[in-house]
Amino acid sequence: MKSILSTKRLTPSQKNLILGAGFSVVEYDAIDIEFADFKLPQRLEHLIFTSKNAVKAFLNKIRETKAVNNSIRNTERLLSAPDNSEVENYKCFCIGPKTETLLVNNGFKVIKSALNAKELAYFITQKYNKEHFSFFCGASRRVELPQILKEYSVSFEEIIVYNTLLKSMSFKQQFDALLFFSPSGIQSFIANNQLKNTLAVCIGSTTAAEAQKHTVNFTIANDTTIESVIARAVKALNKQTLD
């Protein structure tokens, strides 16, 4: 039986997509997220999020700030503690459908959801180049988006809201496919393992660029979802069986 290693823990329904195809699956979290200590800008209007983790960190900070604000007896509202009506007025720009869904479910208005950082950056430079942006991101964020914004003189401030922690594990088993969901996930895996001839299935082009540093045996999912990564792996392994 062919085997698949997922570098992110899967839901029961996601695991069943693999098991139902006749493959075994091992799963673990190759990375962990730690919220950073940061301050919300006083000026919040156009917000950029490149991941769900950035949105989660932002929401967590809003809740923290509101809790502190509610403990203050005077009635002056802190500018950095937006209320629900203000949230509805934010204009959000993000990457990926899951990030967009998280924003929408929390009452935010999403102006643009792009497939990758370059697409989002060029959209902003073409449509909103006169606005000021707050870019919420992780400490290990890629350089494409801020580089492009700087090249086109778009005003923005970058706020580091979370750190990525690598959780490396060593595997003696040789897998037929590896599921990767971020460049950090690949870095975590190769710290104690080798890709060798195993197929690396990547969630997007950014993750694939990291995989390409270590192997030529990689493929990219059709969409930036876990289900799409699984579907790509199943299709590739089934093709190997037929060949």
Rank of each mutant, 00 (worst) to 15 (best):
M1D: 07
S3D: 10
K8Y: 13
R9T: 15
T11S: 12
S13D: 15
L17A: 13
L19S: 07
A21Y: 14
V25H: 12
V25G: 09
Y28M: 05
Y28D: 13
I31C: 09
I31R: 01
D32M: 06
D32G: 15
I33R: 08
E34V: 14
F38G: 01
L40S: 02
P41R: 00
T50R: 00
S51A: 11
S51Q: 10
S51Y: 13
K52A: 14
K52L: 11
A57N: 05
F58L: 03
N60T: 09
N60K: 02
K61R: 14
R63V: 10
K66Y: 14
K66N: 05
N70G: 03
S71K: 10
S71W: 01
R73Q: 00
L78I: 09
L78Q: 04
L79K: 10
S80C: 05
P82G: 08
N84F: 13
N84K: 05
N84D: 14
S85L: 06
V87L: 12
E88D: 02
Y90C: 14
C92D: 11
I95H: 10
I95T: 11
G96C: 07
K98N: 12
T101V: 10
V104F: 01
V104D: 00
V104M: 10
N106S: 12
G107R: 14
I111M: 10
I111V: 15
K112C: 07
A114F: 08
A114N: 01
A117C: 11
A121C: 05
Y122V: 03
F123K: 00
I124V: 07
Q126R: 12
Q126S: 09
K127L: 00
Y128V: 03
K130T: 11
F133Y: 02
S134V: 03
F135I: 02
C137H: 11
G138P: 04
A139H: 10
V143A: 08
L145M: 09
L145A: 07
L149M: 05
S153L: 01
S153A: 04
S155E: 05
I159T: 15
N163I: 06
T164G: 05
S170W: 12
F171W: 15
F171G: 05
Q174G: 09
Q174R: 15
D176F: 07
P183F: 13
P183W: 11
G185S: 04
G185F: 12
I186N: 14
I186F: 00
S188N: 08
F189K: 04
F189V: 02
I190R: 08
A191L: 06
N192Q: 15
Q194D: 12
N197K: 12
T198W: 06
C202A: 02
C202G: 04
I203T: 03
I203Q: 10
T206V: 08
A211I: 04
A211D: 00
Q212I: 00
T219Y: 07
N222Q: 09
T224N: 13
T224C: 08
A231E: 12
A236L: 00
K239N: 09
Q240D: 06
